[in-house]
């Protein structure tokens, strides 16, 4: 038996409509209180992997264990309290205020007929404060920029108070300042004991907050483990199929790539 928080073994996945397999024979362990970044080219199967861990998609083979138990054994509500998802983007049809929207994160803590209480409101406001949007609490979500929306989705997941947070390309719409703010939020969560798994297209940014890293290509995990072991120029070049180098710049790692015009 594995002692890790989440244990995936021999997972595969095929979309019914398209005949091609998205994930092959995938095995991965997530340690408690770790920050794991999943990198890889577009279409490598990163989002599908997150959806499988969440239980939203089901692997026809292998197994996914959470605290040593199959995830299918957890009730929906129990799962909602353990794991939260920050999707890549979300279509919002109605003009919710930021506060009303973040309050939705309290759902797994409320009974079917229950309404959010004052305590839930306070938790929601604190979550908005954490991502720096408390000032806008009464504004409609539909008026926010793409980056602010992404931060509101993070706040909603914070209000959920899960022990594991999955984020799908959380920085894709953020400007530099908000990116750094989000990294700060992730580090704060990690200090609070939350386990984090996120996908990213920015290896250097991901490396700056991660303890572990997995590199995917064509539905397979090519390299995984501690960041120092995984993040190397050779590995990245292999996964992305273009030559890249990694340089140390102070305490940060920087990706150096060849400009296509300079060859």
């Amino acid at each position: 038996m594995s002692t890790s928080l989440i244990h995936l073994s021999e997972i595969s996945f095929t979309y019914r409509e398209e005949k091609n397999t998205v994930l092959y024979d995938l095995t991965l362990d997530i340690e408690r209180n770790s920050v794991t970044s999943i990198l890889g080219p577009n279409g490598a199967g990163k989002t599908t992997l997150l959806h499988l861990i969440l239980g939203w998609k089901k692997s026809p083979s292998g197994r996914i264990l959470l605290h040593g138990e199959p995830i299918s054994g957890y009730s929906r509500k129990a799962m909602g309290r353990i794991m939260g998802l920050v999707p890549q983007s979300e279509y919002i049809s109605f003009e919710y205020s930021l506060l009303e929207y973040v309050l939705l994160g309290r759902a797994p803590h409320l009974g079917s007929l229950e309404m959010p209480s004052k305590k839930d409101c306070i938790i929601a406001m604190e979550s908005l404060e954490t991502v720096g949007l408390a000032e806008l609490a009464e504004r409609p979500v539909t008026h926010l920029s793409g980056g602010e929306r992404q931060l509101v989705m993070v706040a909603r997941t914070l209000a959920q108070e899960p022990e594991i947070i999955l984020l799908d390309e959380p920085t894709s719409h953020l400007d530099l300042a908000n990116k750094i703010r989000l990294l700060g939020v992730l580090m704060e969560l990690r200090d609070r004991g939350v386990t984090i798994i996120f996908t990213s297209h920015e290896p250097d940014m991901a490396a700056s907050v991660s303890t572990h890293m997995a590199l995917m290509r064509d539905g397979r995990i090519q390299y995984s483990g501690q960041v120092d072991e995984v993040l190397s120029g050779d590995h990245l070049s292999d996964v992305y199929g273009i030559p890249v180098k990694i340089e140390d710049c102070g305490d940060q790692k920087v990706i150096i790539w060849h400009h296509p015009g300079n060859q």
């Binding site: 969440l54 509500k77 129990a78 799962m79 998802l85 979300e90 759902a107 997941t157």
Partner: peptide, 19 residues
């Protein structure tokens, strides 16, 4: 109140502990 959750994307409402 739960109606609010059903206008979200399916995977989001699922992640919030809803079927």
């Amino acid at each position: 109140w739960r109606l609010n959750l059903l206008c979200l994307n399916d995977e989001t409402s699922f992640s919030l502990g809803i079927a």
